[in-house]
């Protein structure tokens, strides 16, 4: 059973990547297992300067999901290079740096900086964070702005560029095509679904930020549909995500068109989730007579 997948020339030992914001920079989870078993790790969203993020509370649990409003708290690119890159460099797994900013210049400067880091194999462009006031999702809503920012970043990015798409848009296929037209080497979707939670007793929102991004099993059906639509719209590879909890979920995402997947909230629910999914994937795939995991990408039977 071959679990290898290749995206934009980068080889992953298996299609399981931990999603940005749910895995820190890997250190915390390495206390629980050897994280080199993962296909890849996507870092917490990085900005040029250190950021403190939003006020607390930043998390609300809802049925089969969570809503977060962390707001890109991170050590900044220089802090990342100093504190986290040496550890990431020691791992035998693909490292994807997730970058975010307020302006086009922020994104291009970051793309240039992360491209120079040897440990970074790919760059994920975060234009879909619902939790920051400026930039973030503002670049990711209108198809034209997706294309423009992708084009601008592509000029400075010397590593394969993945554009992470927001589900909070009119037509996901249009945005996927815009990323492709802008020169993206791959796309990843979906980021969190905008949502809120309210306490009926206090009549206050649970989150200090009022609203945030919903993730977890609650959004899986939305994510599957959007990956399917994006797959029909573009030729570049897709990294699918949204509520993946088990190996069976991974196969579903690959069948609708994902070449690899990201596991996010599941890490938060269970520190060993990503490792468990990697281990189970071989067994589940074998039970479906799959010899090559990449053979099932886009094999959905419909019509």
């Amino acid at each position: 059973m071959n679990t290898k997948v290749t995206i934009a020339g980068v080889e992953f030992k298996n299609p399981i990547i931990t999603a940005s914001g749910t895995f820190g920079f890997g250190k915390e989870y390495s206390e629980f297992y050897d994280i080199s078993v993962l296909g890849g790790i996507c870092t917490k969203g990085l900005t040029l300067e250190r950021r403190e993020g939003n006020k607390s509370p930043r998390i609300a649990e809802t049925n089969m999901g969570i809503i977060n409003s962390v707001g890109l708290q991170n050590p900044g690119i220089d802090g990342f290079i100093k504190e986290d890159v040496p550890f990431l460099d020691s791992l035998d797994t693909v490292v994807i740096a997730n970058i975010a900013g307020n302006t086009e210049q922020d994104y291009t400067a970051l793309a240039e900086k992360v491209s120079a880091i040897k440990a970074v194999d790919m760059v994920e462009l975060n234009i879909s964070c619902p939790n920051v006031k400026a930039g973030g999702m503002a670049f990711g809503v209108l198809p034209q702005s997706v294309e423009n920012i992708t084009k601008a970043v592509k000029k400075y990015c010397k590593k394969p560029l993945i554009v992470k798409l927001s589900p909070n848009v009119a037509n996901i296929a249009d945005n996927a095509r815009s990323a492709e037209n802008g020169g993206a080497d791959a796309i990843s979707l979906i980021n969190t679904v905008a949502g809120m939670a309210v306490d009926y007793r206090t009549r206050k929102p649970i989150l200090a930020n009022v609203s945030g991004g919903l993730s977890g099993p609650a959004i899986k059906p939305i994510a599957l549909k959007m990956v399917h639509e994006a797959y029909k719209a573009v030729k570049i590879p897709i990294i699918g995500m949204g509520g993946i909890m088990c190996a069976e979920d991974v196969l579903e995402f690959m069948i609708v068109g994902a070449s690899a997947v990201q596991v996010g909230s599941a890490n938060i629910f269970d520190p060993q989730a990503a490792q468990r999914i990697v281990n189970d994937l071989t067994t589940v795939a074998k039970s479906c007579n799959i010899d090559n995991i990449s053979d099932i990408v886009g094999t959905l039977k419909w019509q």
């Binding site: 914001g21 749910t22 520190p271």
Partner: peptide, 16 residues
């Protein structure tokens, strides 16, 4: 005490 998620220091939701 703060609303918490991962509990291992990775997700940054329980900050004060």
């Amino acid at each position: 005490e703060n609303r918490m998620a991962c509990g291992v220091g990775a997700c940054l939701v329980c900050t004060c």
